[in-house]
Amino acid sequence: MQPFVDVSKHTSNRTVFRYLIPLGIIAFCVLAYFLSTQFDRVPPILKRGMQPSDFPQLIIGLIIILSVWLIFRDNDKTPKRMTKVVHLTMGLLVGFLIIADIDLFLGLGLFATMLTILWGERRAWAIILVGLFVPFSVFFLFDSIFEVRFPRGLLTNIWYG
């Protein structure tokens, strides 16, 4: 039974790899091309050699041609399946962006804490170091020495008043 399972996995990945990625790139290019047709056009006296849409369209055309080539000639190996940890790390990144909207350092602290636990760290001092000590130190280093003004939020408001 084992070989059968492997082959089916391989085939579905191979299809994604061989066709869906170039087709996805082409779809992106078609959308970008459409957007480029919406750019303002300038009168000949102001156009300085090219219309604003000319150069992006040239590049989009090149990408489309190369993507079509990829469909027929891509011999790269199928990448191995992503582990659950990668998916969860990516989820944490998205979570970070949401929480960063409330407070950047709250987002950084929570992300660092969750990531270190997710990646297998169980020692309390290490978790406190990356989740609490480092974000606080970085905040005060940048605020006091580099004079970076961080966005106001739940925690930063306590400092900024």
């Binding site: 950047l104 290490a126 580099f146």
Partner: peptide, 19 residues
């Protein structure tokens, strides 16, 4: 350990990008 190193690298990356 990379579980300590990379969260720290991430914090510096984000603060660097923002700063």
């Amino acid at each position: 350990p990379i579980q300590i190193l990379w969260p720290i690298v991430f914090i510096f990356s984000i603060v660097g990008a923002y700063a």
